[in-house]
Amino acid sequence: MRRRNLTAYGFLSPYLLIFAAFWLWPIIYSFYLSFLSTRRAPWTFNPSMTWLRITQDTAFYNALWNTLKILAIQVPAMVFLATVLAVLLNSQLLRARGLIRFAFFAPVVIGEAAYAAVFRLMFNTDFGIVNKTLQAIGLSKVDWFANPSAAMSLIIMAVTWRWVGYNAIIILSGLQSIQTDVYEAATLERVSPRQQFFHITLPLLRPVLVFCFVLSVIGSMQLFAEPYLITNMGGPGGATETLGLFLYRQGFLNLNFGYASAIAYTIAALAVAISALNMWIGRDRT
């Protein structure tokens, strides 16, 4: 058996080497870094410049608040919309299935830079198609890039556009894994479609929905490219600055690696805590 152990490690080690060097070691190293003052060389042990500072930094609280807003509004709205979409797309009655699926699933393959560019132009204050449409139906135009709540809505809309299809695909596959004979049995017992949805479909989908929530929470906690590219690095005046963007600013613009590491660990802790909360709420109660 020793020989088979060796074979197994032989297959495993190339990946494990990369994994250790570029994932495992950095996790440990950044924890160590988070206690160092790195504003000037040489780096010294000084948690007051990192962990203490984070508790007092209003810019951090602003970024945290913005992230939580996105988390509280965008994630539930998107998972809800994705569930509705998945149920509708799963309908036997649907025509032009391919085209309609394409509409929702295509954004999944589009890169952040590409769609950020389109959203910037579509929401352009003076010449964007969105404001032109608003004016055409008699509403006043919105200054998407100068008004803080409008800018936040823009980010939320963009992220939802990009990710709802992704979640719908996952939920759809969950729907399709439910045996159809369950529904046939229910129909014969005169259970209405609405009751079937709430008493059969939703309970059976629960693990998939929890998965979508957790995935979206982790995604939102790491939101970076959208506020960086669409709202000009978290503008206006930091109104769309997320934790990810704040970290980028501290780590890679100010090159304050110690502080950025403390922020990174804070983000990680929050993501784990909120995911755990999600899983606890969505746990199997039977």
Binding site: L24, P26, I27, Y29, I218, G244, S275
Partner: peptide
């Protein structure tokens, strides 16, 4: 366990050391 466990951590936790390295 290590692979599954650490993959739930955000990328930000590793990107700084990766960059420094």
């Amino acid at each position: 366990a290590i692979i599954l466990g650490t993959m739930t951590l955000p990328y930000f936790v590793v990107v700084i050391p990766q960059f420094i390295m």
